[in-house]
């Protein structure tokens, strides 16, 4: 730590310590940001994510053609000036649908990450902080949940709710995706609650809510953010997979997964119908994972000098 004497005035008593300037105020977050921005792969990821976000927002107000409109041009029409990515099996504009699909992908990814993080953080905090029977129950739930295939849970959920609206798809994926977050937060909480500063907070009369929100959660935030970042591509992929199976967002919603599914039957005839959304999906997943990795390295305390 940089400590340089700010003045050389001699002070005999204990106040002398404070005549020394403390180091420059560098918050832990700033430090992490500096490391993140020096990682080019993560920056590439971030750039793609920002681009995707812009496209998704734009698609809500404008697309070259309506995403649902059929017969705009020739069925399976190849790329042209009017339709840069061509047309699909019912003559819809693929670029428009791709843009609409970005919004769906991001909504599913962010929505699921948010919702499953909330569930996972809440249960993880409770289990790790209160231990005892609370922990036993939550850990049991997690372990049993792990044993049930995600697909089965989602299918049952969709059948019971009897709706394939996007918000229900998000809920369905979230109730399968919170397990890792809960485990992570439980482990972090178990470790943090034994730390001396938490003990100190208890000794100054901090209530449990304060201990959890001011002392434990902020110190677990680094790993939580990283975990949440990984949840986004996983959810996007899962939604694509569900749509591919016909369980995702209902037609004519332009989900990337559904677009792949619709096109792959005619793969030999018109490969672009499948390849364009597949490529978009791949780039998005790579970008999100790259950003997640960069974030993990930036926030990992072991990387901190």
């Amino acid at each position: 730590m940089a400590t340089a004497p700010s003045d050389y005035v001699f002070q005999d008593e204990f106040t002398a310590d404070s005549t020394y300037e403390v180091g420059e105020a560098v918050s832990l977050w700033k430090d992490a940001w500096r490391r993140l921005t020096s990682n080019y792969f993560a920056l590439f990821g971030l750039a793609v994510i920002v681009l995707l976000l812009l496209v998704a927002i734009v698609s809500q107000f404008w697309t070259p053609y309506p995403t649902w409109k059929q017969g705009i041009g020739p069925t399976y029409g190849g790329p042209s000036a009017a339709h840069p990515f061509g047309l699909d099996q019912v003559g819809r504009d693929i670029l428009s649908r791709l843009m609409g699909g970005a919004a769906i992908a991001l909504a599913v990814g962010l929505g699921t990450a948010l919702l499953s993080s909330v569930i996972g953080i809440a249960l993880g905090l409770l289990a790790g902080f209160y231990r005892g029977w609370v922990d036993t129950m939550i850990s049991l739930l997690i372990n049993v949940w792990y044993g049930i295939p995600d697909l089965l849970v989602v299918m049952l959920f969709v059948v019971i709710i009897n709706s394939r609206e996007l918000k229900w798809i998000i809920v369905a994926i979230s109730i399968t995706a919170w397990l890792n977050m809960a485990r992570l937060v439980r482990g972090q909480t178990l470790a943090l609650r034994e730390r001396e500063f938490v003990e100190a907070a208890r000794s100054i009369g901090t209530r449990d809510v304060g201990l959890l929100t001011r002392h434990i959660l902020p110190n677990a935030l680094g790993p939580i953010i990283v975990q949440a970042t990984y949840l986004i591509p996983a959810a996007i992929l899962f939604e694509a997979f569900l749509s591919f199976l016909g369980l995702g967002a209902p037609p004519p919603e332009p989900s990337w997964g559904a677009m792949c599914a619709e096109g792959y039957k005619s793969l030999q005839l018109a490969a672009h119908v499948t390849l364009v959304p597949a490529f978009a999906l791949a780039i998005t997943l790579i970008a999100l994972n790259a950003f997640g990795d960069g974030l993990r390295d930036a926030l990992d305390p072991r990387m901190r000098r």
Binding site: E196, F197, E199
Partner: peptide, 16 residues
């Protein structure tokens, strides 16, 4: 009734 802790590094919340 208050307490002063041994390790001045571990007993202060780094995020506050």
């Amino acid at each position: 009734l208050q307490m002063i802790f041994q390790d001045p590094y571990a007993s202060l919340n780094p995020r506050m």
